[in-house]
């Protein structure tokens, strides 16, 4: 029983960043912009949040206060949103190949934080540990970070926004048939900008969760593929919030299992670590259900 509870909470913790990122990706892809840069956005958000919190702590002489991690979270979201803006400008305004542009951001996310870390901490791979982490919430049988709770509460919100509001209808129209949406008076360009920036902000929040919620510092490449798995969860979840919830829970469970099995003598950890990725490939190959992307995804829009 104890093991099951541990596994349950571990699953929640692992699924939360995937869920936040995938919900972000949902906006972007539903608007017709492939966002392979989610991985990089997580990293930029994680670095920004950890560095912000650390700088505040240094400036205030190690103050521990309620507001500090929330400022970190906010900065993480803003930086994620700015990276989203870069992706949006490249792929919407300049009609860049969206995958190439996203790849550029992912590569930058491996290098850029190191340069800043070197200047601040004389070290290219980790930031200083922070004391102000995002608060925990007690669920009766265990505690989780408040962002885990927020991530799961966001699912119905996103569903409502996408499927029950005029804005959501327009967003989906833009991703399915931008010309038709434009004819109906929807500003395709603005919708896409909003969606991509929103996806960057959510990925940035996921990154902040990793660096100042789940852990207490930024580590180079700490996302370890979360952005790509979130993308796969998006496909597996058929670009639907509840589908995405199920997919991220499945992937989160696989990761939690990998952690639980580590050090045990059931399976070698290195093998178990590969399981989420193998699972993703099986999903993509359609062994576990087919899914259809938004019709206009990946195509630049020309008026």
């Amino acid at each position: 029983m104890e093991l099951i509870i541990a596994l349950f909470f571990s699953t929640l913790r692992q699924a939360a960043p995937l869920l936040l990122t995938a919900l972000g990706g949902l906006f972007s892809e539903r608007s017709g912009v492939v966002n392979i840069a989610l991985e990089g956005m997580i990293l930029f958000g994680a670095a920004a949040a950890a560095i912000t919190v650390n700088r505040i702590e240094v400036a205030t002489g190690g103050l521990e206060a309620f507001w500090i991690p929330w400022v970190g979270l906010l900065v993480g979201a803003i930086v994620g949103g700015l990276v989203g803006l870069i992706h949006a400008i490249a792929s919407i305004k300049y009609r860049a190949d969206q995958i190439v542009s996203g790849t550029a951001i992912n590569i930058a996310a491996l290098g850029a934080p190191s340069i800043v870390l070197q200047v601040l901490y004389n070290n290219t791979s980790t930031s200083q540990e922070v004391n102000n982490r995002l608060p925990l919430v007690n669920l009766g049988i265990g505690e989780v970070s408040v962002l885990v709770l927020i991530a799961f509460l966001l699912v119905p919100v996103v569903w409502w926004v996408l499927f029950k509001t005029p804005w959501g209808l327009r967003l989906r129209a833009v991703g399915e048939h931008p010309e038709a949406a434009e004819t109906m008076g929807v500003n395709v360009i603005r919708m896409r900008y909003t969606a991509v920036i929103l996806s960057g902000m959510l990925a940035g929040i996921a990154g902040a969760y990793l660096s100042i919620g789940f852990l207490n510092q930024f580590i180079r490449a700490m996302s370890a593929g979360a952005g790509f798995i979130a993308l796969a969860a998006l496909i597996f979840g058929k670009w639907h919030p509840f589908g995405v919830l199920g997919a991220t829970l499945l992937f989160g469970f696989a990761q939690a299992l990998a952690i639980q099995l580590q050090g045990g003598d059931i399976l070698p950890a290195t093998i178990v670590q590969a399981l989420p990725f193998i699972l993703t490939m099986l999903v993509l190959a359609g062994f576990i259900g087919r899914s259809r992307p938004p019709a206009a995804v990946g195509k630049p829009y020309d008026k």
Binding site: A96, I107, A108, S114
Partner: peptide, 24 residues
């Protein structure tokens, strides 16, 4: 100069990005 050689990686990323947008 104590500048991380990761600057090369950032330069590469920038080049990819700028080529993707056709060099403006």
């Amino acid at each position: 100069l104590g500048i991380s050689n990761q600057i090369i990686q950032v330069l590469q990323a920038l080049i990819i990005l700028f080529i993707a947008v056709g060099g403006f």
